[in-house]
């Protein structure tokens, strides 16, 4: 594979192999040297703390060098600077790119311009594949399997790269997805053929996982709803809704959370929450992905 551009089209066996490989990096204090001498360059055109840090930590664990590029906050002639940035960082000696960008085709373009393996660290509203692998791994650790797990993704699916990544891969792994939210939060047409519901309360008792999406004010989530208070009342995960879940059900969120909006602070920190497990799995998943990408460096 040339880095990780997308999980779309990956077979179940390929995805499971990737999860097994990631699992092999869990909890290890061992420093793997699979990337020794290679250079991983993180290129972030959108701010992100946890994703970038966990990629960089993963690269260090593999023995790779890390270069970090954070795009200036306000850049005119954005396409120019994007392409030039990639060409420059390639010439400096990048072996693997890790790219975060607001454009949907940014990872593919980076691969085409650089000729290097590229790991998609979240592009446009299209996909965030390592987050999807992290969440799949976290669920597998908790439930022992993914087949038949019922997962409700609650929130602004239309504006969510996390949700699209999940839609691209989790059904292949046997997960039964339901999208929950007000209708303006769903894409106008559904290429995935998944179940949808506008009524969270009626779904709670059937779900193994309530996966809450961040209300992304910066991506225009607010345009689809009249008020945050109203959203919190209809879809916010609170103690009362927690009590409507099956005893084995869990809460997930890709972070960072909006406390009191899509999730109450107590729920996020409660015993049903897998949020910190998700964060912890970031490093092993990214070690697995980077290890594969570095393996093909020239």
């Amino acid at each position: 594979m040339s880095g990780l551009l997308t999980l779309r089209g990956a077979s179940r066996a390929e995805l499971e192999e990737l999860l097994d490989f990631a699992q092999s990096f869990v909890g290890g204090s061992v420093i793997h040297r699979g990337g020794a001498g290679g250079t991983v360059t993180t290129v972030f055109f959108e701010p992100s703390t946890r994703t970038r840090l966990s990629f960089e930590k993963a690269a260090h664990h593999l023995g790779a060098h890390v270069m970090s590029f954070d795009a200036p906050k306000s850049s005119t002639a954005k396409d120019e600077s994007f392409r030039d940035t990639i060409l420059t960082l390639t010439a400096m000696g990048t072996d693997v790119f890790v790219i975060r960008h607001w454009l949907a085709d940014a990872a593919e373009l980076t691969a085409a311009w650089s000729g290097r393996p590229v790991v998609n660290a979240g592009v446009g509203k299209r996909e965030h594949p390592t987050q999807t692998l992290i969440d799949a791994l976290t669920l597998r650790q908790r439930f022992g399997h993914l087949d038949g797990l019922r997962v409700a993704i609650v929130g602004d699916v239309g504006n969510s790269r996390v949700a699209r990544g999940h839609l691209a891969a989790l059904p292949t792994l046997g997960v039964e997805l339901t999208l929950v939210g007000p209708t303006p939060f769903f894409p106008a047409v559904d290429p995935w053929g998944v179940r949808k519901s506008t009524d969270l309360d009626s779904e709670l008792g059937d779900m193994d996982v309530i996966y809450l999406l961040r209300i992304q004010k910066e991506r225009g989530s607010s345009a689809g709803i009249p008020s945050e208070g109203g959203y919190a009342r209809r879809y916010g995960m609170n103690e009362e809704r927690l009590s409507m879940l099956k005893p084995t059900s869990v809460i997930m969120h890709p972070g960072p959370i909006n406390r009191g909006l899509e999730i109450d602070g107590g729920v996020a920190e409660g015993e049903r929450s897998l949020i910190l497990e998700q964060v912890a799995n970031g490093v092993p998943v990214r070690m697995a992905v980077l290890s594969l990408a570095l393996g093909e460096r020239r």
Partner: peptide
């Protein structure tokens, strides 16, 4: 077009 390709890529569609 605000159709399946736009939805899949997460790019704003034009209905």
């Amino acid at each position: 077009h605000d159709g399946v390709t736009a939805a899949r890529h997460g790019i704003e569609g034009l209905p």
